[in-house]
Amino acid sequence: MKTLVIADHDNGSLKPETSKTINAALKLGFAVDVLIAGENVAPMSEIVASIAGVNTVLVADHSEYAHQLAENIADLVLSLAPDYSHLVASATTTGKNFMPRVAALLDVAQISEIIDVVDADTFKRPIYAGNAIATVKSLDSKKVLTVRASSFDLQGEQAPAESRVVDSVFSSELSAFVSVEQTESERPELTAAQVVISGGRGMQNGENFSLLNGIADKLGAAIGASRAAVDAGFVPNDMQVGQTGKIVAPNLYIAVGISGAIQHLAGMKDSKVIVAINKDPDAPIFQVADYGLVADLFDVLPELEQAL
């Protein structure tokens, strides 16, 4: 029995989800190898080798893997699968993209977004937007898992493990990379930030989101949004925190003008401390908030920025 974790990165930097996914994989109780597939990934492979608990790093460095196209990455993982009992990836947009493809090609089920490892076959995962937690047991001989990284801890460091080059190249004719448009931001990524401040429909428009900037700057926070704010066109979808957006669990989550729909709570209710600012005292967000402030956000935000 042996586990393969597929590292998540953007060719420049390793995503923090990778370390947390390794943490989850180690709970399975077997040796953990990590595959890093991409272009010019040598510097990152050294970082991976130094994550505590990593046995061997498999490095697949080729332009065909540069954009993490699901068709190519799935074929690569499939070629390595015979050596492993467990295949594990982060439930990021990259892992969610290629992993079910791997599972189908192996003719096994995938267990998505696990939040706890009960034993090597049994896992806990949220269903119905996190309103229920299912304990599921895989009956397949090979397990394909994705991990909700926010439910696991970062791993420490170790003396670098050995690495091995994987030189097989899979190049599918099915898909090709066209372009990428990165959201420019000086702020930490939502899923990695220690503090997140999110705005909802109560922000009224996209311009008003700038009221969150000063507070985010002072707290080193990422800025998020509710689905209502995204649907209303205030901000782009990659800022969305919720069942259908990003799942976050920072030390401090500040919800501003967010009513607290089930959908949104599913994405943030595991945060350590939750602050809610809303002028409606009956808003459901107050039921999950540690600290609630019933007030008009347009009065509160400048005051809060001053007070920090």
Partner: peptide, 30 residues
């Protein structure tokens, strides 16, 4: 079936918090 549903539970509930009076008290408590 390839997956057995062993059990389904309610997620852990968050205990209710407190309502603060103003920004100053909020920042102080944080």
């Amino acid at each position: 079936p390839r997956i057995e549903l062993v059990a389904v539970h309610e997620p852990a509930k968050r205990s209710g918090g407190i309502i603060v009076d103003d920004v100053a008290q909020l920042v102080d408590l944080l």
